[in-house]
Amino acid sequence: QLNAMAHQIQEMFPQVPYHLVLQDLQLTRSVEITTDNILEGRIQVP
């Protein structure tokens, strides 16, 4: 299920590496919260 959620987020934010999306999802278990984390700059994109 997390993989499906990660792919959904990757479609919206292809610039964010998959492993970072998955790592955040493991903590949040939420597409909405992880999306917010990306938008708020809480996930550092190399």
Rank of each mutant, 00 (worst) to 15 (best):
T35M: 14
Q23V: 07
L20S: 05
Q23C: 09
Y18K: 07
M5F: 08
F13S: 01
D36S: 15
V21S: 00
E11P: 03
P14W: 04
V31C: 09
M5G: 03
T34C: 04
S30A: 04
G41F: 06
Q44A: 11
T28I: 01
S30V: 03
T28Q: 02
M5E: 05
R29L: 14
L27H: 10
V21L: 10
N3E: 15
V16G: 00
M5Y: 09
Q10A: 14
V16R: 01
H7A: 13
Y18C: 08
A4K: 12
L20H: 05
V31S: 07
V31Q: 07
P17L: 06
T35L: 12
G41H: 06
T35D: 01
P14S: 05
E32V: 10
Q1T: 14
Q44H: 11
D24L: 09
P17W: 06
Q8F: 13
P46Q: 10
Q23E: 12
L22K: 04
I9K: 01
R29W: 15
T28R: 01
D36H: 14
L27N: 10
L2D: 03
V31N: 06
P46H: 10
M5D: 05
Q10M: 14
P46W: 10
L25E: 01
M12L: 11
L22H: 04
Q26G: 07
D24V: 05
A4C: 09
E40I: 08
S30Y: 03
I33H: 09
I43M: 07
Q1R: 12
M12P: 01
I33R: 13
A6C: 06
R42T: 05
Q1G: 11
H7C: 13
M5H: 04
H19I: 10
V45G: 09
E32R: 13
L22Y: 11
H7L: 14
L20F: 07
I43T: 03
Q1S: 14
E11L: 15
V45D: 09
L39G: 03
Q23Y: 09
Q44Y: 14
T34I: 03
N37Q: 01
T35H: 06
H7Q: 13
H7N: 11
T28Y: 06
T28G: 01
P17C: 10
E40C: 13
T34E: 01
L22A: 04
P46G: 11
Q10L: 14
S30M: 03
Q10E: 05
I38G: 01
T34D: 02
Q1M: 13
H19C: 13
P17F: 05
L2K: 01
D36A: 15
I33S: 08
T34Q: 01
E32P: 07
E32T: 10
D36F: 15
D24P: 05
I33P: 01
E40Y: 14
A6Q: 03
V21I: 15
E11K: 15
I9M: 05
Q15E: 12
P14K: 05
P46L: 11
E40R: 15
T35R: 13
Q10G: 08
Q10P: 00
Q1A: 12
T35Q: 07
T35A: 10
S30D: 06
N3Q: 14
V16I: 15
P46S: 11
A6D: 00
V31H: 05
D36K: 15
V16L: 10
P46K: 10
E11S: 13
A6K: 02
